[in-house]
Simulated scan of single mutants.
Amino acid sequence: MISKRLGIVKNIKSENDLIQDLFVDIHGDIQRAYNYIQISGKAKVGDRVIMNTTAVELSLGTGGFHYIITNLDNPESSFTEGGHIMKLRYTPIQIKVDSVEEQGSPYHDTIKNFTDLDKLPVAIGELHSIIPPFVATFKKICPNKRLVYIMTDGAALPLAFSKNIDILKKKGLLENTITYGNAFGGDYECVNIYTALITAKEICKADCVIIAMGPGIAGTGTKYGFSGIDQGMIIDAVENMGGESFIIPRISFSDSRDRHNGISHHTMTILKDIANKQTNVVINNGYDRQKIEKMIVQLSQNDINSKHKIIYAKYNDTKKDLDNYDLKVRSMGRTYDEDSELFDASSCVASVIAKKLNE
């Protein structure tokens, strides 16, 4: 069941063509709510809106906001032209998109005639927060190379929810965005990861691709019960199609949970038990010796060395790269200074790929 409440829009904090950040009066209590324009149309001050308030009432950190279901003062809307593929399928808020694969698409034959990714480098990460440091480092080293972001449907489904991507696009650091599965709102919409990769190479003309879920992640403290497990399938997809995959390991020495200390058990599960194809595992050896030794032991104990290619590389300029583009980062509530290894791991992968492209 979902929890629903009626409220009145009191203020529009910010908005763009896809999303509005609103303050809504719920029985005299002013609370924050997001409105996805593709779903419920544009809201204005004074409108009566029905909201899904479930996450806030459960005190969830991930997705912990109200979301507008419908606008009682703007209840009707009309189709946009084109598109026959549905996302959020078989739900009351299913939406149609212009998918690159469908027969009416100008890109249909491009998808149909695809042959090979031709060693396109693809970085695969788990948390959405690893995207800004990757982009900042990659663009510093390769300012003229085309970088494309593919968003999975493992967390937030509307790309519009990501402030990171909005900022990176506005700064000209990402050339294109692609959403697949039930994720929506990218520059290009795709049915699955395979056609998303084809779109990145053949339509966006990417020199490099970064793939990660949107904001948020579902985790349960169990080996297989986390939404980032799809990284294993993505590695296989990249390798099956002739690309070159690089996993961005989830690394932290600030997380109080032992299972996420050093190299996260999420990354270990992906590499040991889920991915069938060999991938490149980039480890930043710019950390202090004790931390590096712990990660070496973790890789050895899980037999990762025999299954995948381990690349040790040193990169210590993450903070400079972020400051260069005036980018702020935060993950699990922690800033760069509070959890630097997490962000450094992402930058290190970007540096390895960028330097290879410049050879």
Rank of each mutant, 00 (worst) to 15 (best):
N280C: 10
K223C: 05
Y287K: 06
N261P: 00
I274D: 07
M233F: 08
R250I: 01
S264Y: 02
H265D: 15
M295A: 02
D288H: 11
D255S: 11
Y224F: 15
E293F: 14
R259L: 06
H266K: 04
M233V: 07
H308Q: 09
I283N: 02
K291D: 04
G232E: 11
I274S: 07
K291V: 04
K277S: 14
S227W: 02
K309V: 08
K291R: 13
Q301I: 12
G225D: 05
K291T: 03
R259N: 13
G221A: 04
K223N: 12
D236V: 08
P249K: 01
Q278P: 12
M233K: 14
G242P: 10
R250G: 02
H308N: 14
S306L: 12
G225C: 02
R259M: 12
T267C: 09
G219I: 02
I283V: 13
I247L: 07
F226N: 12
T269H: 03
N302T: 11
K309G: 11
H260L: 07
T222W: 00
I234C: 02
Q278G: 08
I304S: 06
P249Q: 03
I247N: 06
R289K: 15
N276Y: 12
V282M: 09
S300M: 14
G228E: 04
R289S: 13
V238D: 01
V297A: 13
E239L: 03
H265Y: 15
G228V: 02
N284I: 03
K309R: 15
S245M: 08
N302F: 12
Q290F: 10
N280Y: 00
Q298P: 00
S252R: 03
E244D: 13
M295T: 01
L299F: 08
T220S: 15
R250E: 01
T269W: 00
N280P: 10
G242C: 09
I270T: 14
K277R: 15
V281M: 10
D255V: 03
H266Q: 14
F246H: 05
Q278I: 07
D273R: 07
A237K: 10
S264H: 09
K309I: 07
T220N: 11
G221C: 03
G243I: 10
P249G: 03
K291E: 13
H266A: 10
F246K: 04
N284R: 06
Y287N: 04
K277W: 00
P249Y: 00
N302K: 13
D273Q: 13
M241W: 07
Q301W: 09
I270H: 05
